[in-house]
Design a protein around this nucleic acid. Structure first.
Length: 575
RNA sequence: GCCCUUGUAGUUCAAUGGAUAGAACGAGGCUCUUCUAAGGCCUUGAUGUAGGUUCGAUUCCUACCAAGGGCACCA
């Protein structure tokens, strides 16, 4: 439709002997101003010395002369010289029919068709709890991965995990000090949570107890060298159960990773690269090997600074491991077009330095790396503790939220399995929506009560809208009212005016790596649908238009389902 | 000190350089003999400061103010 209208404007301008290269056509924010709008008269009025409003009138005159398209109902001049196009009921009915025919595929585009993209996200560390930041990165990463998939990309999901380092030694120290925490009788979640406690204990001891610090440093070396049988045994067990516990969380969240990269494997790869290039790209400084990135500062780009790649102790830093990781990723998928990494904002500056080093070593990777950063999650009230009094981890937030939803469903007539499943899906949706409803760069002020209040602007509101549509459709089936486009009537509902825009929203979210466009769109269209639902009896044998209204409901349910999928949110049929 | 991010209703967030700056929460009122009231309808309020570019700036540029993050052997 956009193309047709642009062509129409272009032809109209040609008739007036005006030439323009680019015509901007947009959806006005307010539906009163039509379905499409162009500012062309405003844009060119000055250069050809004409009054914009008069010029707009002339253009509309030409458009009306040319237009034989039944999809456009009305063209008018408004405001300072905007030309607004109102589409016809016929167009909207046709778009509803298209959605029904496309169904689960509605919203897809081929802008990234054939592109191979790896997205790395989540990155929790074995031996440490799955914290809020991991939850956040996961929600964003999964949504971006799905959105890029909708644009036709071939996505590989990757997870990068710190399987060595001080945090492991701290946990093992805690496990050695309190052997009860090594109890293996419970399931892996219980065992993993004990390891989390051991980590907290060791972490605290490291800060406050000089002897503990020495001991932990000693353990750290042994973990690295793998030369202590007892420690190896604890390590192998701890690694296994914490990784298994993460898998349970991924399952609840709806993520399935294709690749796992371990930090211990990257250290060697990265160190070889640094060593090979020392004296060239890297240089020695105070016993360490560093990259003086400020030498490569460019005008108009963020300023870079020096970073240590190999410490004076000879140990590779995070930067070196990241170097190795990038190398490994491209080795794993040699024909990869883009490697996306998602982390918190705090990693932005040194990732830029690392990216600079890589792009000098591998100019061919330069345009194939993308680092996306997000803000932090902060809690209203400042108390970072969950209901049980512990520090809020990603896991505790997830469990508390699910439990709350379950409580809310107490009066409902569902089996306990159904309740478990639904409360889990709704709880995940409450959290994910809170994260994805705003643009990803900024911090999120998380209000636990609000996220599960389910009013207005929330994931459960969207899911609830879906179940309502679903109930309508069930009833329609029972009464044998099938979608039909014979009688469409004259009235144009607000929800109709929004449905056909879904693919454009998906494309924009995909191009800008911003899932919140989808979240905002879904809220708006759900509101429009709920309003339609509240004011109209959809399934009604007495109503000639009922079949079309059922079709409209089907179209809405497809759009909502596909949109929620892109946010990584499940759509229960009932709740 | 330098660099990055962000400043919008009381609060939490929107707004490809466009029209009367949108929602939600909060507050107040109405609403189930209708397909799930976790809903709908109505009322109420904002662009940090000072300049600049533009027909037009919340958006772009400059300075200032404020918040968060980063700046060599942690990740």
């Amino acid at each position: 439709m956009q193309k047709e209208i642009k062509k129409l404007i272009k032809d109209a301008l040609e008739n007036l002997e005006i030439e323009v290269s680019d015509i901007v056509l947009e959806h006005p924010e307010d539906l009163k101003n039509g379905d499409y709008s162009t500012n062309i008269a405003l844009a060119i009025a000055k250069s050809i010395k004409r009054n914009p409003r008069e010029l707009a009138e002339k253009i509309v005159e030409q458009i009306l002369r040319l237009n034989v398209d039944k999809n456009i109902e009305k063209v008018e001049v408004a405001g300072a010289g905007f030309i607004n196009f109102h589409l016809s009921k016929k167009f909207f009915a046709k778009s509803v029919e298209d959605i029904l025919n496309t169904a689960d595929n509605f919203g897809k585009n081929d802008s990234l068709s054939g592109k191979k993209i790896m997205v790395e996200y989540t990155d929790p560390n074995p031996f440490k709890p799955f914290h809020i930041g991991h939850l956040m990165t996961n929600a964003i990463g999964e949504s971006l991965a799905r959105t890029l998939e909708y644009s036709g990309a071939d996505i590989a999901r990757a997870n990068y995990q710190g399987d060595v380092g001080l945090h492991v030694a701290k946990a093992i120290y805690g496990l050695l000090k309190d052997e009860k925490l090594q109890d293996k009788t419970g399931d892996h979640n219980l065992q993993s949570s004990n390891i989390g406690k051991a980590y907290a204990f060791g972490s605290d001891a490291y800060e406050t107890d000089e002897n503990a610090k020495k001991e932990i440093d000693e353990i750290n070396k042994k973990v690295y060298l793998r030369d202590d049988e007892k420690i190896n045994e604890i390590y192998n067990w701890g690694f296994k159960v914490t990784m298994e516990a993460f898998e349970d969380i991924y399952k609840i969240l709806g993520t399935k990773f294709d690749f796992y990269f371990l930090e211990s494997m990257m250290a060697g790869v990265g160190r070889d690269i640094v060593k090979e290039n020392t004296g060239k790209l890297f240089e020695e400084s105070d016993g360490a090997i560093v990259f003086k990135a400020e030498k490569y500062n460019e005008e108009g780009h963020p300023k870079l600074h020096t970073r240590v790649f190999i410490t004076s102790q000879g140990l590779p830093t995070y930067e070196t491991k990241e170097l190795g990781l990038t190398e490994e990723k491209f080795k794993t998928k040699p024909d990869m077009d883009l490697s996306v990494v998602i982390t918190a904002n705090e990693q932005m500056d040194y990732m830029r330095v690392v990216a600079k080093a890589i792009s000098i070593l591998h100019p061919e990777y330069k345009e194939k790396m993308l680092h996306i950063t997000h803000g932090m999650m902060r809690f209203v009230g400042g108390k970072m503790s969950s209901r049980k009094g512990n520090i809020i981890t990603g896991e505790s937030l997830l469990n508390d939220t699910r439990a709350d939803v379950l409580g809310r469903m107490s009066g409902r007539d569902f089996s306990s399995e159904e309740k478990d499943k639904i409360s889990s899906d709704v709880g995940v949706s409450a959290i994910k929506y809170s994260i994805l409803k705003q643009s990803i760069g900024g911090d999120i002020i998380y209000d636990f009560e609000k996220s599960i209040s389910f009013e207005g602007d929330s994931g459960p509101y969207l899911q609830y809208s879906y179940t309502r549509a679903n109930s309508v459709l069930e009833k329609a089936q029972n009464e044998n009212i099938l979608p039909d486009f014979e009688n469409i009537g004259d009235e144009i509902f607000e929800v109709e005016k929004m449905l056909y825009k879904f693919p454009e929203v998906v494309l924009r979210a995909s191009e800008e790596y911003e899932p919140h466009y989808i979240a905002n769109y879904l809220i708006e269209i759900s509101r429009a649908f709920n309003s339609f639902y509240g004011n109209t009896l959809i399934v009604n044998k007495e109503d000639k238009l009922s079949s079309y209204k059922v079709a409209l409901t089907y179209a809405f349910s497809f759009v909502l389902k596909n949109g929620l999928h892109l946010l990584g949110i499940k759509t229960p049929k009932k709740m």
